[in-house]
Simulated scan of single mutants.
Amino acid sequence: MLTISQVTERTGLTPYTLRYYEKIGVLKGPSRRAGGARSYTESDVSYIQCLVTLKKLGLSLEEITEFTRDGCVMDRIQQGEDPDHFTPTLNKRTEILSKYLLDLEAKRQELDHMISLAQEKLNGYLELSKERCEELK
């Protein structure tokens, strides 16, 4: 069992964020120790890391809540649950991820363009510097 401090070290989230996610229902409340301190499992940490990934993709907390409503569906299907039971969830997750994939592709194209412009400028400056050094010789 892991403490909230250990979980924050492994996930990069603050204790405040973990408690907030718990409060709004994005994260289910962990078990508690005798004194009331939160106690997390490795499974909890994996789930929190999934939340972090979804947040990095740009999903809002509302979308993350919707996305994770039925828990880790892939694990449940691998454990033998009927995939047909999860059709609405899988459809919603597909819709959410498809939207964000399009957004990420657009951002990648924009970044590729910016990288190209920066490389052109850099090459121009390097060429000018090289010419200037040769003139001074």
Rank of each mutant, 00 (worst) to 15 (best):
T68M: 13
G36R: 10
T89V: 14
S43A: 15
I77S: 01
D75A: 14
L51D: 04
S46L: 13
G35N: 15
G36T: 11
S129E: 13
F86S: 07
E63L: 06
R19K: 10
A118T: 13
Q79H: 11
R38Y: 11
E63R: 02
L97E: 05
M1Y: 10
D44P: 03
L13N: 04
E81C: 11
R93M: 05
R10N: 14
Q119I: 00
P88W: 03
V52K: 09
M114P: 00
P83N: 10
I48E: 07
K99Q: 11
L111W: 02
D82L: 08
Y40N: 08
L126R: 14
L59D: 03
R38C: 10
K23H: 14
S98M: 04
R19I: 02
Q109M: 11
L18F: 09
R10K: 15
G80Y: 01
G80C: 01
Q6F: 07
S31P: 04
P83I: 02
V45S: 05
E105F: 01
L61I: 02
L128Y: 12
K23S: 13
V26F: 02
M74I: 13
G36V: 10
L13Q: 03
A37M: 08
S31L: 14
R33L: 12
M114L: 14
I64A: 03
Y16M: 01
F67E: 08
F67T: 02
L97G: 08
S60H: 06
G12F: 05
I96C: 09
D70E: 13
D103S: 07
R33M: 12
I115Q: 05
R19H: 06
R38P: 04
R132A: 11
G124C: 05
T94P: 00
I77H: 00
S31Q: 15
Q49C: 14
L18K: 08
S60N: 05
R33P: 05
G36Y: 11
C72S: 13
L128T: 12
V52C: 10
S46I: 04
I24E: 08
V26C: 08
M74F: 12
I77Q: 01
E127S: 10
T65W: 02
R19T: 08
G71M: 07
D82Y: 08
L97P: 04
Q119L: 01
S60Y: 06
L54I: 06
P83V: 07
A118H: 03
K56C: 01
A34T: 11
L59I: 09
E95C: 04
L117A: 00
Q6V: 10
L128M: 14
D84I: 03
K137S: 15
K55S: 02
G25Y: 06
L136D: 15
L59E: 03
S5M: 07
Q109K: 12
C50P: 01
G58C: 05
I48F: 06
Y20C: 02
L13G: 02
S98W: 01
S116A: 04
T8W: 04
Y100G: 07
C50A: 11
I48V: 14
H85R: 15
V45P: 04
G29W: 00
L54K: 04
V7R: 03
L54G: 07
E62D: 11
I24Q: 08
Y21K: 08
Q78C: 01
K107G: 04
